[in-house]
Structures are given as C-alpha cells and as structure tokens.
C-alpha cells in the first residue's frame, strides 16, 4: 500500500468544484480546501507508486482550474 499527499495549486476560485472532482478520482480518500500557498490537499491510498503518478499526473492535472501539483509519498 502506498499513501500519498497531493498538494494542488489552483487558478480558479471554484474550490468546491475542484474538491468534488478530485474526491471522485479512484484511490483518492479525501480532499480538503486549505489556506496557504496551495489551495487543496488530497490524500490517496493505492496499491503501487505507479498509481500515485496516475492520480497526480493524469487525473488531477487534467481537471480544469488545476495549475500545478506537488506529490509527497508517505514513508511510514
């Protein structure tokens, strides 16, 4: 099992829509709108590191209004 956190920088004020789109991605357990330099943080739990890449690079990045992502894989 791989747990990962994806920091998402948006370029739209439609934070609700982004959160809902991100939460509907397979493997994403939760997504939160946060204050600070990034706008949302999603937590994913999947089987392989490749699936983490799939979530961050393919699914999240393709949502309109997502400017950039940064992914952290948990070590514990």
């Amino acid at each position: 099992m791989v747990t990962a956190f994806v920091m998402i920088k948006a370029n739209t004020g439609e934070a609700d829509r982004l959160r809902d789109s991100i939460e509907s991605i397979d493997g994403v357990r939760s997504a939160h709108i946060v204050a600070g330099d990034v706008d949302l943080i999603a937590k994913a739990i999947v089987e392989t590191p490749a699936e983490v890449k799939e979530i961050a690079a393919t699914h999240v990045q393709s949502i309109e209004g997502v400017e950039d992502t940064q992914t952290y894989i948990a070590m514990d």
């Binding site: 948006a10 370029n11 739209t12 004020g13 934070a15 709108i33 204050a35 706008d39």
Partner: peptide
C-alpha cells in the same frame, strides 16, 4: 496574493 483566491477565502476562511 492572487485574485482567484479572494472568493475561496471569503467562503472558507
């Protein structure tokens, strides 16, 4: 620092 965040902070913060 960015215009699009205005609505987000008004709503959530």
């Amino acid at each position: 620092d960015e215009a699009y965040r205005e609505g987000i902070y008004r709503k959530y913060a």
